[in-house]
């Protein structure tokens, strides 16, 4: 749910990083945080376990500048990827404007990716959204690892609707901003439609 504040001339959008556990969602957010000028970002919040696994969500507010005199803010969230945190994942999808699916490219994680995409579809439906209609980008993460599935195979298994697909290595930042940009663009185009 985009929040347009005419009084303070601000617009806030919510982007959620979704995907299987240990796929690199938090790493994406951490890279965006590290590379953004202090003036353009807020504090990054991580509600994580003692072993740094996401427990509830990570949150990063990002100020991208002005469009037509309106300050544009993106609130980036990650969900906990582990299967048993499904109740938390549903909550975080509330009011989402755009989704980035962070897929783990390792061959042995393909089943987890597939399960997570269908979990996303189901949870979106529960919140009254349709994956086919919502701004959505697929990120193939960890492309630097030796045991990765081919891009074609991953596209075939995971793509849902001709969404932008980006290869990434979130730990070094490759593809991180491009992915964010791809989904932000779709969100702003949705706004244009009114």
């Amino acid at each position: 749910m985009t929040f347009i504040n005419y009084a303070s001339r601000e617009i806030n959008c919510k982007i959620v990083y979704y995907g299987p556990g240990l796929g690199g969602k938090t790493t994406n957010l951490q890279y965006v945080y590290d590379k953004t000028a202090p003036s353009a970002k807020g504090k990054m919040i991580s509600l994580a376990t003692e072993t740094d696994r996401t427990l509830f969500f990570d949150f990063l507010p990002l100020e991208l500048g002005s469009v037509r005199g309106f300050k544009t803010r993106f609130h980036l969230y990650t969900v906990p990827g582990q299967v048993f945190y499904d109740a938390s994942r549903k909550l975080i999808l509330k009011g989402v404007d755009g989704i980035i699916f962070v897929a783990d490219s390792q061959v042995e994680r393909m089943d987890a990716n597939i399960e997570s995409v269908s979990n996303l579809e189901q949870n979106l439906k529960l919140q009254g959204y349709d994956l086919m209609k919502i701004p959505y980008t697929l990120q193939l993460n960890k492309r630097d690892l030796p045991n990765v599935a081919s891009v074609d195979d991953m596209k075939r298994e995971l793509m849902r609707k001709g969404e932008p697909v980006l290869e990434a290595v979130a730990s070094t930042g490759i593809g991180v901003f491009d992915t964010l940009k791809a989904v932000a663009k779709q969100v702003l185009i949705e706004l244009k439609k009114g």
Partner: peptide, 22 residues
């Protein structure tokens, strides 16, 4: 009227690209 008043109705690809150039 909402469509007419939307500040984003006239948004261009350049506007969006500019957001990410900083």
């Amino acid at each position: 009227r909402l469509d007419v008043e939307s500040p984003f109705a006239e948004i261009t690809d350049d506007d969006i690209d500019n957001l990410f150039t900083n």
